[in-house]
Design a protein around this nucleic acid. Structure first.
Length: 551
RNA sequence: UGCCCGAUAGUAUAAUGGUAGUACGACUGUUUUUGGUGCAGUUUGUCUUGGUUCGAAUCCAGGUCGGGCAACCA
């Protein structure tokens, strides 16, 4: 029996509602606007909404909040569906607010008939002015006193396309002095002569968020409508509409959105990064988008685990990026195939190795007993990392240097005899002798070494490209950093290097997760071809040596 | 200075009137044919002032601090 994890406050509400018999079962929804790609913040919401349904035996709708045709596109609809599915969730119904346009229009007429809505001819500026300020009550205008008949005629004419954009709006008639600004006769419908991605040119009036979202929830019989904190002041209006219309009482609950260190979490800013070329696309592996993270090599499991660990609450928060990294590492460590790749090579010559070559075997994953092994060719000349040799080794350095010995992973122990330098003083070749009785798995040499190096046989090496990513921004908290967020873009967020890889990589599955030994976790980029393999670095390995060096 | 929301280690998040715990991070040590992994340990916290109570992170009141609200966006 595992320990029961305590419920978050929304789960508690659901549990209480169910226990009280308020609902027989629950129905949640994930309601993205198709005006951009989903990011890790949306993943939090997706995991919450779908997770609630899973936990309490309910279901979840996917609903596109597509009430603003000027910003929404089918491309975004498709990417959102793909991302939700990739994360591992299934919706019971695929819905669109635009499916309810007729119903919403009928609701509007109903409010008009009840004297609860009116057509206003004021300009946007006038309306804003008449709304007052948070501390000063709004003032009305004469349009507010139009008769039901006149409002009805006018609103029908709006729908019929008799007016230009912005000429008239439909407003709720609530309370211009309400301390909640959202209750000061909010706009319900506006005229927009725009082509809608689903309804085409059928409509020229479109409902506002506040007149679409709650009713959509209600139409679908959503029991728990979960959204982020900024919608708290909208809740009064949400409830008002449902009450006046006398429809299914969906309830809204709010939680704090996700913020993360070293990145931005706004569609507007992400769009800007794409449009201005700071990154290459929405699915650039540096982006915090679901598609970017997928391309970078994050697994759905690790993202779900992350969402599980960050919790749900109402206080503002900023999550350490290192927690996300921890989650991927933890999963990848269990599933990634180990391979050897040398990125910044120097030649290693084994002077006493007389064979042409031999085939060694190395485990695919030491965490997985049944993971098997792959063949790795070994020969007299190898590539090793430049940083694995030091001409004058420091005390705690236990790699190669004059007179020092190391283990070559899954091969032999070698001892350094000498090295060559070029005219600039750069090491070009390191000469070692190997100990034939130290072969991995049958070591009788009795020699103990501290360091183990990865290597690639020079004549068998395959050239590959490594994309090493670093954080996109230089400051932890972009929300409190002064000035333009783009001033903090990390100019070194992408480092492309050519590397030598062991040949097995050519035949490995394109969707495999790799750990390049001592370097990090990597995932093949979709732009790869068989003669030009490109790997994205998902995350580095923890590096105790790097920390030691900083001291 | 109208209304609303919030405040527990560096960062998150539990404790639902009864021992302030967990995770990540940081730091030690240990294991290791990855300076990875694993394992063991250390470190740091209830915004403040009163009140209620045998007992308060929790309930009440005042204060402080942070955030939100005045798009024909969602």
């Amino acid at each position: 029996m595992s320990e029961e994890k305590s419920l978050n406050f929304i789960e508690e509400i659901v549990a209480a509602d169910l226990a009280a018999g308020k609902h027989k079962s629950i129905l949640t929804r994930f309601p993205p606007e198709p005006n951009g790609y989903l990011h890790i913040g949306h993943a939090k919401s997706i995991c919450l909404n779908f997770g609630l349904a899973q936990k309490f035996n309910g279901a979840t709708n996917l609903r596109f909040d597509d009430t603003n045709p000027e910003k929404e596109e089918t491309e975004y609809v498709e990417s959102i569906k793909a991302d939700v599915q990739w994360l591992g969730f299934n919706w019971v119904k695929e819905c669109y607010a635009s499916d309810y346009f007729d119903q919403l229009y009928a609701f509007a007429l109903e409010l008009i008939d009840k004297g609860l809505a009116y057509v206003d001819d004021s300009t946007a500026e006038e309306i804003a002015q008449q709304k007052g300020t948070p501390t000063v009550p709004g003032t009305g205008n004469d349009y507010r006193n139009r008769s039901v008949e006149e409002n009805r005629t006018l609103f029908e004419a709006m729908k019929a396309g008799k007016y230009k954009d912005g000429e008239k709006v439909l407003r709720a008639k609530i309370d211009l002095a309400n301390p909640n600004m959202h209750m000061r006769d909010p706009l319900l419908y506006r005229i927009k002569t725009a082509h809608h991605h689903r309804t085409g040119d059928k409509w020229c009036i479109y409902p506002m968020y506040d007149f679409a979202h709650g009713q959509s929830d209600s139409i679908e019989n959503i029991t728990h409508s979960v959204c982020t904190l900024e919608f708290i002041p909208h809740r009064a209006l949400y409830d008002w509409c449902i009450e006046q219309l006398g429809i299914f009482p969906s309830k809204q609950y709010e939680f704090a959105r996700l913020n993360m260190t070293y990145t931005v979490m706004s569609k507007r800013k992400l769009l800007q990064l794409v449009q201005e070329g700071h990154v290459q696309s929405w699915d650039d592996p540096r982006m915090p988008t679901i598609s970017g993270m997928r391309r970078r090599g994050y697994t759905p499991e690790s993202i779900r685990d992350f969402c599980d660990r960050i919790g749900i609450a109402k206080r503002e928060n900023i999550i350490d990026f290192s927690l996300l990294e921890f989650c991927v590492r933890e999963h990848l460590n269990k599933i990634a195939l180990r391979r050897m790749v040398v990125a910044n090579p120097i030649k290693l010559v084994i002077t006493n190795y007389e064979q042409a070559e031999e085939v060694l075997h190395s485990e695919n994953n030491p965490e997985d007993e049944n993971g098997g092994a792959r063949a790795v060719p070994f020969s007299k000349e190898l590539w090793i990392e430049r940083e694995d040799f030091m001409e004058e080794p420091t005390k705690k350095y236990f790699r190669l240097g004059p007179g020092l010995s190391v283990r070559l992973k899954s091969a032999y122990i070698v001892t350094c005899d000498s090295f060559d330098k070029d005219a600039d003083g750069n090491i070009t070749t390191v000469y070692v002798t190997y100990h034939p009785n130290s072969k991995s798995g049958s070591d009788t040499s009795g020699i103990h070494v501290k360091g183990t190096l990865h290597w690639v046989s020079a004549k068998h090496a395959v050239k590959v490209t490594l994309k090493e990513y670093d954080r996109l921004f230089n400051v932890e908290d972009l929300n409190t950093a002064e000035g333009d967020f783009k001033d903090y873009i990390n100019p070194n967020s992408l480092n492309t290097v050519e590397a030598y890889a062991e040949p097995s990589l050519v035949n490995d599955h394109s969707d495999a997760r790799f750990q390049f030994l001592r370097k990090g976790y990597f995932y093949r980029d979709p732009a790869s071809t068989s003669n030009n393999l490109v790997f994205n670095r998902t995350v580095t390995l923890k590096d105790a040596w790097a920390k030691e060096q900083k001291k």
